[in-house]
C-alpha cells in the first residue's frame, strides 16, 4: 500500500475509533500494523487524528514494549526468556543468535533483514526453550536447533 493510501486508511480507522473511550491503544496497534512502526510521522498522525497530545502518544508508545519507534527487520526473532525457558538455558540460544547475526539483542541487522529481541514468556512453556520468528513458534530448542532454524531463514534471504 502506498503511504498516501495508508494514511487515508488510518484516518478511517481513527475516525471510527475516536468516539470510543480508551481507543488510543487499539488505534496505536493499528497504526503500527499499518506503518510498521510508530515513528515521529506516525505518532504525529495518531495525535492529530485522535486529538490527543503528541506527548501522550509517545508516553504510551514508550511504556508498552510491543510498540516500537523504529521499523523492525523483515524477520523478527524473539527468544523467550520466561522462567521456564531461562532455567532451560535460553540465554545460550540468545547468545548464539547474537553471534550468528552479529547484532546485540534489541537491534536490527544493517540490511534490515533480522531483528532480535528477548521476549517475556509467550506461554509456550511446555516446549521450553522457545523462540518465535515472525508468527512462527519454534519449541524444544537446543543451540544446534536454533542455529539450523536461523540458518534456514538466512539462506531464504540470501544472507551469509
Amino acid at each position: 500500500m502506498a503511504t498516501e493510501e495508508k494514511i487515508a486508511r488510518f484516518r478511517e480507522i481513527a475516525a471510527a475509533a475516536k468516539g470510543t473511550s480508551g481507543s488510543l491503544i487499539p488505534v496505536m496497534h493499528e497504526a503500527q500494523e499499518l506503518f510498521g512502526c510508530l515513528d515521529y510521522e506516525v505518532e504525529k498522525l495518531v495525535a492529530q487524528e485522535m486529538e490527543v497530545p503528541l506527548a501522550d502518544v509517545y508516553g504510551v508508545a514508550t511504556f508498552y514494549s510491543k510498540f516500537h519507534l523504529e521499523a523492525k527487520g523483515e524477520y523478527q526473532i524473539n527468544v523467550c526468556l520466561g522462567t521456564a525457558c531461562y532455567v532451560k538455558g535460553a540465554e545460550m540460544i540468545l547468545e548464539k543468535i547474537e553471534d550468528m547475526l552479529k547484532i546485540k539483542v534489541g537491534h536490527t541487522t544493517s540490511d534490515g533483514k533480522f531483528s532480535l529481541e528477548a521476549t517475556r514468556c509467550i506461554g509456550a512453556c511446555g516446549l521450553a526453550p522457545v523462540m518465535t520468528v515472525n508468527d512462527e513458534v519454534h519449541g524444544q530448542l537446543t543451540v544446534d536447533k536454533a542455529e539450523r532454524i536461523i540458518k534456514r531463514y538466512m539462506s531464504e534471504t540470501g544472507r551469509k
Partner: peptide, 21 residues
C-alpha cells in the same frame, strides 16, 4: 482490548488505566 506488552497491566488498577488508553 489488547495489551501491548506491559507486565504491570496484570495489576487490576493498571489494567483499567490501560483499558482507558
Amino acid at each position: 482490548r489488547l495489551g501491548a506488552g506491559a507486565f504491570v497491566c496484570g495489576e487490576e488498577t493498571a489494567l483499567m488505566t490501560s483499558i482507558e488508553g
